[in-house]
Design a binder for these strands. Structure first.
Length: 824
RNA sequence: GCCCUCGUAGCCCAAUGGCAGAGGCAGAGGACUUAAAAUCCUCCAAGUGUGGGUUCGACCCCCACCGAGGGCACCA
């Protein structure tokens, strides 16, 4: 736009936006420093977007918050890297491609261009030199390289397993794509299907993923740490060996309560485990068992997850021998025991485990209490007791407490070779295969002679075949399988005919290490250089939605640890500090087209301007809270920005004027605002920082209109401070103010004003005098007064003396210079 | 069922255990104006979900309950 400035009495945000964007393009204020930069580094990272269309309100909030942090540290003199890229592989592009019958690349790169242009207009302080997209062969080449590194170390492997299967979409689903038992996209009930798939062995890192969280304590939201702990779900217990009648091999069970071993009255094996099938085979129960197995396999996740589901199972008519007392325990098969947790078999102690008790009552099995807790007998109450108590009916354990009994029995079992202390995890290995087109091809060749062979590094990237001619519709097999020219290849080892793996990688692989690539985004020889990561990593501040609290963050932590072990990284946690912003909602619920409460970002920007929208997002409340757009007032933000902008036109002193000659009370307000705003930003209370700027704007307005007047140096000092503070939130307004104040762009690089500590202390402060906690008097005292002096002044005060009426205080608490409390 | 977070003016939100109010929205009145808009000034409001406890002193710490939101969910 080349319109001349209108005669605008009011601040014209549209004009100001068009005016500064090309100037900033030329200045490139946010290029992070290169090798010779002496400033201390800060790596501020926003979670990269998925290019699903243009930016929406959620992006507007996230990037506004990340920008405040990045711009703050730049002003504070740090060499800030604030990069952006696109998480560009994934199903929405594939679905759009199917619908439009074109290559997913077209939709993806168009959307990236759209989002990039919107980010520029939104004045994000990104370093545009470091951009990459995960669907660029130059990027996914390194996914493949990393896959092979994991494969070399046994951390990438294939296995048969029952995976989530959506009959509607004809594809496997990740756990996170199954919402309440339904496919998140088509709402079809998800079933299980046995498939041979690739996994990453994240379970090898379970303990470190848990224990290293100690480093993150206080730096990450507690909520996220708790969620990760629960997700990993480490439990401490013991494996116990039970002999089985008529079977050579004993069966090992896992329990967290070995102390209750004498209370076991039956054993349960997972119905879908090989063990259950073997124990049922050939016996009178085989038919009944097979029917049961068919029934539970047909059950959807919906049924399986129902909380009040009655227990079911089959008596296998076989017996296990309790190692501590030789008792014969009937063995049952049931679906309440999971085949892939622990050993897939449990000892059932109905008195002290609710599930076992429910099962025992349903099947009329005996209940034996072995911990006397003082509560009602579980056999009659139907409520299992979990608490501590005294062991009974337990041979050598009788009389012991829970902890003592666990130690004693574990030791006893270990001595006899019948058991040992053991740990289990809820965390499962990460299923990375996807039967989809738009992802990173798995760089493995299957050869009849040589088995699975990694594609040699010099043949990477293994690029996706052209989408033209491929049917991308989901049909249970990867679309890549149909690209016969691509699939048929030579074995890299024996040069014989071989087939490529046709699956692609989960897109979470792409995002698990992208933050390592930004410092080396143009490196063609390695995924990242050790020198670059040593310079920039770990990420000092990560900003993103809480929706990624578990998966993305857990996977990234896992990758970081693996790369640390390989020797490519010198640290083991990728993100030092984490901020989770809330969502933008409307009238209390998430925005959606179907709900009819969608607010379009482009409309809001059109109506109120970029700065007002950014300000509204930041000022709406604490960043981790949801922003309800019906509660915020963008027009109020416009009003405030206009008010601030007007100050810059009122200042009449010249740039460079000596501030120390300025009005003292306004100077104090300025320095206090700078001090408080710094503190607020550093503790993520951006809304409070904005409130401090508003106060200073009000104080400056008053000083101009009815105080020291526009020519006072303090008015310039205050207005310049306002421009600099506003540059974090409202860059256009701030830049315009900065120019009107007689400075050259860019205000983003002006530097945070130095705070004079002498101006932060008041000459006199008001101290409160309380009697028995009730305020009786306020007195003006020096801020440096001692406790004793304050106490003396308080007691000598006429009002207080009168109140006391000669009574001797029991106690006097003085907290100089704020208050005195006299206790009678 | 288990775990986590949060309840402060009409609304959004502030308050290192020390005067409950910083800021904003909405509302009322006034100045300016022929009038309106814009702008400026002034005013308005809760005793902190409920009940206990610790403390000289509690919005803040502890316990119980009520309410809202979120996470996990047959993990032995």
């Amino acid at each position: 736009m080349t319109t001349e400035p209108r005669e605008h009495a009011a601040y014209d945000f549209a004009y100001v936006q068009e005016k500064w964007l090309p100037i900033w393009d030329k200045l490139e204020p946010f290029k992070s420093g290169r090798a010779d930069d002496a400033r201390p580094k800060k790596y501020v990272l926003d979670m990269f977007p998925y290019p699903s269309g243009d930016l929406h309100m959620g992006h507007a909030e996230a990037y506004a918050l990340g920008d405040v942090i990045a711009r703050y540290w730049i002003q504070r003199g740090f060499n800030v890297m604030h990069p952006i890229g696109w998480d560009a592989f994934g199903l929405p592009a594939e679905n759009a491609a199917i619908k439009r019958n074109e290559d997913p690349r077209i939709w993806t790169y168009e959307n990236i261009a759209t989002q990039k242009a919107s980010m520029r207009r939104y004045a994000c302080s990104f370093d545009w030199d470091r951009v990459f997209n995960t669907c660029d062969p130059e990027y996914y080449k390194w996914n493949q390289w990393l896959f092979i590194e994991l494969h070399k170390r046994g951390l990438a492997y294939r296995k048969d397993s029952a995976v989530n299967w959506c009959p509607g979409c004809q594809t496997v689903l990740a756990n996170e794509q199954v919402v309440a038992g339904l496919c998140e996209r088509c709402d079809t009930a998800v079933t299980k299907k046995k498939l041979n798939q690739w996994y990453f062995k994240i379970t090898d890192y379970a303990d470190r993923l848990l224990d290293d969280m100690a480093q993150l304590e206080g730096q990450w939201p507690d909520k996220v740490l708790t969620m990760q702990r629960n997700w990993i779900g480490r439990s401490q217990g013991a494996n116990v060996v039970f002999e089985i009648e008529g079977r050579t091999e004993p069966v090992t069970i896992y329990t967290t309560r070995p102390d209750t071993l004498y209370g076991a009255t039956f054993m349960v094996v997972a119905a879908d485990s090989p063990l259950a099938a073997e124990l049922a085979a050939g016996g009178s129960v085989e038919k009944e068992f097979t029917e049961y197995l068919e029934k539970i396999k047909a059950a959807s996740d919906i049924d399986r997850l129902a909380t009040d589901r009655p227990k079911s199972g089959v008596d296998l008519k076989r017996f296990a021998i309790n190692p501590v007392n030789g008792e014969k325990l009937p063995i049952w098969a049931s679906d309440y025991v999971l085949a892939d947790y622990g050993t897939g078999a449990i000892m059932a102690v109905p008195a002290h485990d609710q599930r076992d008790l429910d099962f025992a009552r349903a099947m009329k099995l005996p209940v034996r209490t072995v911990v006397e807790t003082g509560e009602e007998d579980p056999a009659s109450s139907g409520v299992a007791t979990h608490g501590d108590g005294v062991m009974i009916n337990s041979g050598s354990l009788n009389g012991l407490k829970k902890v003592e009994a666990i130690a004693a029995i574990t030791k006893e079992l270990e001595a006899k070779g019948l058991g040992k202390s053991s740990r289990n995890y809820r965390l499962r290995d990460w299923l990375v295969s996807r039967q989809r087109y738009w992802g990173t091809p798995i760089p493995i060749v299957h050869c009849d002679k040589c088995g699975e062979v990694a594609v040699p590094a010099d043949q990477l990237p293994l690029t996706l075949p052209d989408a033209k001619g491929l049917d991308l519709k989901p049909k249970g097999q990867s679309p890549l399988a149909a690209a016969t020219d691509w699939v048929n290849t030579q074995c890299p080892t024996c040069n014989g005919p071989a087939l490529r793996d046709t699956d692609t990688m989960d897109t979470f692989v792409d995002s698990s290490w992208y933050f390592l690539r930004y410092p080396s985004s143009t490196n063609h020889d390695e995924p990242f250089s050790r020198k670059d990561v040593d310079t920039w990593l770990p990420v000092d501040q990560y900003v993103g939605g809480v929706t990624h609290a578990i998966l993305h963050l857990l996977y990234s932590r896992f990758f970081t640890k693996v790369l640390h072990d390989i020797g490519m990284l010198g640290f083991n946690e990728p993100f030092t500090r984490l901020l989770n912003q809330g969502m933008v909602v409307m009238d209390g619920s998430a925005m959606s087209k179907s709900r009819g409460n969608l607010v379009r970002l482009s409309d809001e920007l059109e109506n109120h301007g970029v700065d007002a929208i950014r300000l509204s997002m930041v000022f709406a409340g604490p960043p981790e809270d949801d922003v309800d757009w019906s509660d915020v007032s963008p027009s109020g933000s416009v009003k405030f920005l206009t008010r601030a902008w007007r100050l810059s036109g009122d200042v009449t002193s010249a740039p460079g004027v000596d501030f120390t000659k300025g009005d003292l009370s306004l100077r104090k307000a300025t320095h206090k605002a700078l001090h408080d705003a710094s503190f607020a930003v550093e503790s993520f209370r951006f809304n409070v920082a904005v409130a401090r700027v508003m106060e200073l704007v009000n104080a400056t307005r008053k000083a101009i209109d009815s105080g020291c007047g526009p020519a006072d140096p303090a008015v310039r000092e205050a207005t310049e401070a306002i421009a600099i503070m506003l540059s974090l939130v409202a860059p256009f307004t701030a830049e315009e103010m900065w120019e009107r104040l007689g400075h050259k762009p860019a205000v983003a690089l002006a530097g945070w004003p130095t705070i004079d500590p002498a101006l932060l202390v008041a000459d006199e402060v008001e101290a409160v005098v309380q009697i028995n906690g009730k305020i009786k008097e306020r007195i003006l005292v020096s801020p440096t007064i001692t406790d004793a002096e304050l106490e003396a002044q308080a007691l000598a005060h006429p009002t207080i003396a009168q109140e006391l009426a000669g009574a001797t205080p029991k106690k006097v608490i003085a907290r100089a210079p704020k208050l005195v409390n006299i206790v009678l």
